[in-house]
Design a binder for these strands. Structure first.
Lengths: 108, 108
DNA sequence: ATAAAATATAAAGATATGCTTATATTATAA
DNA sequence: TTATAATATAAGCATATCTTTATATTTTAT
């Protein structure tokens, strides 16, 4: 079961606007770090460190695909996480725009 | 609707073990500050400051009763809050013990 | 084998957080 | 009205967090 530590870490991970935006974006589709850098207009190390926090809190999973690392939503440990995701502001247009600008990564 | 700011504030408020314990305790019954001081073994200002954070995040409500201020659960803005509360470790025995020690406040 | 691209890690600085001590409010009781 | 109890606020300090710059790692392409 969940203990105090895990529950606090979960909420700390979500206590940041940038990470909330990242999770909202991942609802639309899996994204790699360089795509998130474009979407968030942040430096690459900043994004990587946010992803580490989300990963440590078990909210995202990573998979290596060629030279890219793609992140996807997880959160299966937290029964309220799915409900929470639904309440996030919609960011799907930002991903449409990314594609329109030809910045979506194509693997092989 | 909820915006990024409110959602981040909500999660920041829950990103602390002490505040998680407080919310778990409030599931059993409303409590005043001096009772929480006893239960948490913390100084009164420390508790008051935690309650302010929870109040600002709209997770608790306060009501004055004589010289005491009682706090109760709220969180009605956040549809996932009720589900989350269910996952907190049980603390009801701590309140039983408080009563056994004669430290429950009686108003009037 | 080397170079380039994507990502991760580390160090450093600025801001935020949580606790303590001291002081101010507010409400009851004497 | 003065004293006391409960709570809140403020200042100060230690620790944590977030961002940046610099560097390391990993994978692919040449």
């Amino acid at each position: 079961m969940l203990d105090w530590e895990q529950l606090a870490e979960y909420h700390k991970a979500l206590g940041d606007k940038t990470r909330l935006r990242i999770l909202s974006l991942l609802r639309t589709e899996d994204l790699c770090v360089c795509e998130l850098v474009e979407l968030l207009k942040m430096t690459q190390p900043a994004v990587s460190q946010h992803m580490r926090k989300l990963k440590n809190a078990k909210l995202v999973k990573e998979r290596r695909q060629g030279k890219w690392v793609f992140y996807s939503l997880d959160g299966s440990m937290f029964p309220f996480f799915q409900e929470f995701l639904k309440t996030l502001p919609d960011t799907s247009k930002e991903i449409e725009e990314l594609k329109a600008n030809g910045l979506k990564v194509v693997c092989d």
